[in-house]
Amino acid sequence: MGAFLDKPKTEKHNSHGEGNGLRYGLSSMQGWRVEMEDAHTAVLGLQAPGMTDWSFFAVYDGHAGSRVATYCSKHLLEHIITASVSTGGKQGLQVGSDGCSTDTQALPPPAVGAVKAGIRTGFLRIDEHMRSFSDLRNGMDRSGSTAVCFSTLDHKPCNPRERERIQNAGGSVMIQRVNGSLAVSRALGDYDYKCVDGKGPTEQLVSPEPEVYVMVRAPEQDQFIILACDGIWDVMSNEELCEFVKSRLEVCDDLERVCNEVVDTCLHKGSRDNMSIVLVCLPNAPKVSEEAVRREAEVNKYLEARVEEMLSRPREDAFPDLVTVMRNLASDSGMPPLPPGGGLASKRSVIEAVYNRLNPYKEEDGVNTLYKYAPLCVDLLQKIHV
């Protein structure tokens, strides 16, 4: 759902940080959507009693507007911290009236169970708090947002557990949507779906209750964590994205750049949604490899030479557009191995740089050839998984 632009907005928002034994980078792009509805949070070292060794990362995928996603990106963490500290206080933590302590290092960390309960309570509290906002309460703004803060399962209306709750609240699941409209069954906001009399907040058509998982770390095996929105997952599977990120970390240690490559690749694979990704690297993350850098340079050199060859040969017909160039490269049997999970789409910037340098024609409206023929190109790139 949602309207699209004539050409994508490709400007990116980037950030990065390092601390607590972690490094992170993030990238977000509006893409083809008429509005940027994604938001994110990345905090290293929580300013709360005993939690300076904790970090928090989240991606919020908004729908029907950006209001809820934006507010949650700024305030969900404080609700979680307050709830976690309150629960921990029962175990002996001394907390000030503002929910924080001036000496956070001296206090013991809250138990994992307290934080787990705090996350659930924090979600429920911020959802109830936003309900008081006049624009959300009176229906002038009908926005909502999903939230991924670590490992999750998709909350789809057709899942048996979700369908049962929806039907118990008097709703139905049609075309895999709540009442034939909303594609997610749990979200923050979306108050049009949370007004069934006699039902609690977690029993409504759409529930704000998160599923919280505790995963035991395996330091020798754990490499990185990826949090992303549907604009990424629509065109890359878990396995494809992990393989692609791993291959990029072996040739570049700039996490912002790695995230930018993911976003660009997803755009060229045909994603029509907003795109956001947060990449958190653990101490055992892949390191830059001289061999991988060498292979990367060879692939780029090969692509540059092939495009130059295609565009420089004498011809009687019209100068080929970029779609034709991509199609010819896709059928090239001599192509060296491309980045796993990314394929030819991940090399579009290399290909386009040569194409633009040798193209004697200029688009009067400034629309890139690849975007001018977007429907054809999207269909093509979705078939390219070299």
Rank of each mutant, 00 (worst) to 15 (best):
P110C: 02
E261N: 10
L188M: 11
Y361K: 14
N20W: 11
Q221A: 13
A117M: 12
E316F: 14
P210S: 07
I351V: 14
D192H: 09
G31W: 09
L205Q: 04
L267H: 00
G170E: 13
G180K: 07
L255E: 01
L5K: 12
K347D: 04
V235N: 01
L267F: 02
L344R: 04
Q94G: 08
A39S: 13
I351W: 00
V214Q: 14
V214M: 11
A318N: 07
P108M: 12
I175T: 13
L267D: 00
G2R: 07
G343D: 13
V367E: 15
V280P: 06
Y371K: 00
V34L: 11
H40V: 09
Q382K: 15
A353C: 04
S172E: 12
T10S: 09
A114K: 05
P110R: 00
I225F: 12
S237L: 01
I226A: 05
P8K: 06
P108A: 13
Y373E: 07
A58N: 03
P337M: 07
A48P: 06
Q204H: 08
C149K: 00
P283G: 06
H13A: 11
Q105T: 13
L329H: 01
A83N: 08
A111N: 12
C252W: 08
S276T: 15
R248F: 06
A69F: 08
Q30P: 05
N368L: 08
G122N: 10
P49Q: 03
G17H: 08
Y191Q: 03
D192N: 14
E18H: 11
D135W: 04
G366Y: 04
S73W: 07
E211A: 12
R357H: 11
G99T: 07
V214A: 14
R131D: 01
H155F: 07
Q94D: 13
M236S: 05
C259K: 01
H385D: 14
I351E: 00
G334F: 02
G122P: 11
L255R: 00
R177A: 09
Y24E: 02
S312L: 09
A345T: 03
L136S: 06
S247E: 05
L153Q: 12
V278T: 05
G144Q: 01
R137P: 01
D332M: 09
R131S: 11
G180I: 03
L282Q: 03
R315V: 11
E162K: 00
V288M: 09
P336V: 10
P286H: 06
W32M: 02
A111S: 15
G25H: 01
C229W: 01
F123Q: 03
E18K: 15
E250R: 14
I119L: 07
N20V: 08
I232E: 05
L26P: 03
E243G: 15
S86F: 05
V184K: 00
E209C: 15
M275A: 13
G21Y: 09
N179F: 04
V263Q: 01
Q91K: 12
L227A: 05
E203T: 09
A187P: 02
V280K: 07
